[in-house]
Computed example of a mutant assay.
Amino acid sequence: MKHFFVFRWFSSPFRYAFAKLKKKLGKLDRLKLEIFLVIGNGRKVFVKGRVVEAYRQSRPSDKKTALQNLLATLRRYAGSSVPDATILLAYGSHQAELITDSEGLFEKMLRFSDAERQAVQKIRFSLVPEQGLVPETGWVERSVHWIRKPYPRAVISDIDDTVIISKATNIGEKLWLSVSKNAYTRRPFPGVSEFYQLLTANGEYPVFYVSSSDWNLFDLIRDFLSYRNIPLGPILLKDGHINLKNIWKSGGGNHAHKLEKIQFLMEFFPEQRVLLIGDSGQHDPELYAEIIRRFPDRVEAVYIRKVRQGDAAREHNLNQLLPPNKVAWVKTTREALLHAQKHLVV
Rank of each mutant, 00 (worst) to 15 (best):
M1S: 04
R8I: 04
F14S: 09
F18K: 15
V38E: 02
G42A: 08
V51I: 12
V52Y: 00
R56E: 12
R56L: 09
S58Q: 12
K63R: 12
S80M: 12
I87W: 01
G92D: 02
G92F: 05
G92Y: 08
G92L: 08
Q95W: 12
F106Q: 00
K108Y: 06
K108A: 10
L110C: 07
D114L: 13
A119D: 08
A119P: 02
L127S: 01
L127T: 03
E136L: 10
W139N: 09
I159W: 02
V179L: 12
S180G: 03
S180I: 06
T185D: 09
A201K: 12
N202D: 15
N216Q: 10
R222L: 15
R222D: 14
L225R: 03
S226C: 14
R228M: 13
L232D: 12
L236R: 01
L237N: 00
H241E: 07
S250M: 07
F268S: 02
F269E: 02
V274I: 07
L276F: 11
G281H: 07
P285V: 03
A289F: 06
R298V: 07
E300A: 05
E300N: 04
I304R: 01
R314G: 02
E315D: 14
L322W: 08
P323Y: 10
P324V: 09
A328P: 00
A328G: 03
W329L: 12
W329K: 05
K331F: 11
T332C: 04
R334G: 00
H339M: 02
A340R: 00
